[in-house]
């Protein structure tokens, strides 16, 4: 595969990489570093991709693998993050509630162990248990057991965060 074709694929599926970076890193700088690391590892592994699975499955596997294995800087976590653009109008109440729900869900997922985070991300992106098993390297049954346990954990975390 040449560089142009590769860049086209990454460009189309970059949403997966962004999601993995948000899941596994806390600061914008760390996320940017991880994004770059994932693209680099994808480029190194692309020749091993023989089209046996979907391209997005391959990208998810390499992205999760890199996020888990990559060296991380132990930067301080109390970092102020700035949004790129400030909206001209304040968001409507409904939007606020939706944004709040999204943040709470992401916060709850980030409280899970690294392995559970990988599995729930794949579930939420509609991958089948079989595909998840292939990516992680476990059986479909094992995935099923884990998913039901993780869902309960998230529900509990969301309930607790709502009460607080």
């Amino acid at each position: 595969m040449n560089e142009d074709q590769f860049l086209q694929i990454v460009s189309v599926h970059q949403g997966i990489i962004h999601k993995v970076c948000r899941l596994y890193r806390d600061t914008p700088t760390d996320r940017e570093d991880l994004f770059q690391e994932i693209v680099f590892q994808l480029w190194r592994s692309i020749d091993d991709f023989r089209g046996q699975s979907k391209t997005s499955t391959f990208i998810y596997r390499i992205a999760l693998n890199t996020a888990i294995a990559a060296f991380r800087n132990n930067r301080k976590k109390n970092v102020i993050s700035y949004v790129d653009q400030v909206p001209e109008m304040p968001p409507a109440n409904e939007d606020c509630a939706l944004a709040d729900c999204k943040d709470r869900l992401m916060a709850a997922i980030k409280m899970l162990d690294e392995g559970d985070r990988a599995i729930i991300a794949l579930v939420l992106d509609e991958y089948s248990y079989r595909e998840i098993g292939d990516i992680i390297g476990i059986t479909e049954n094992n995935v099923g057991v884990k998913v039901s346990r993780i869902k309960n954990k998230i529900r509990l975390l969301l309930t607790n965060s709502h009460e607080n």
Partner: peptide, 24 residues
């Protein structure tokens, strides 16, 4: 959860920026 997850905001990187990430 799925609908909240898929609606997460993501940044978009241009091809030129991505090309710069391929080198050591």
């Amino acid at each position: 959860m799925k609908s909240l997850w898929t609606g997460q905001p993501i940044g978009v990187k241009q091809k030129e920026e991505l090309a710069g990430m391929l080198t050591e």
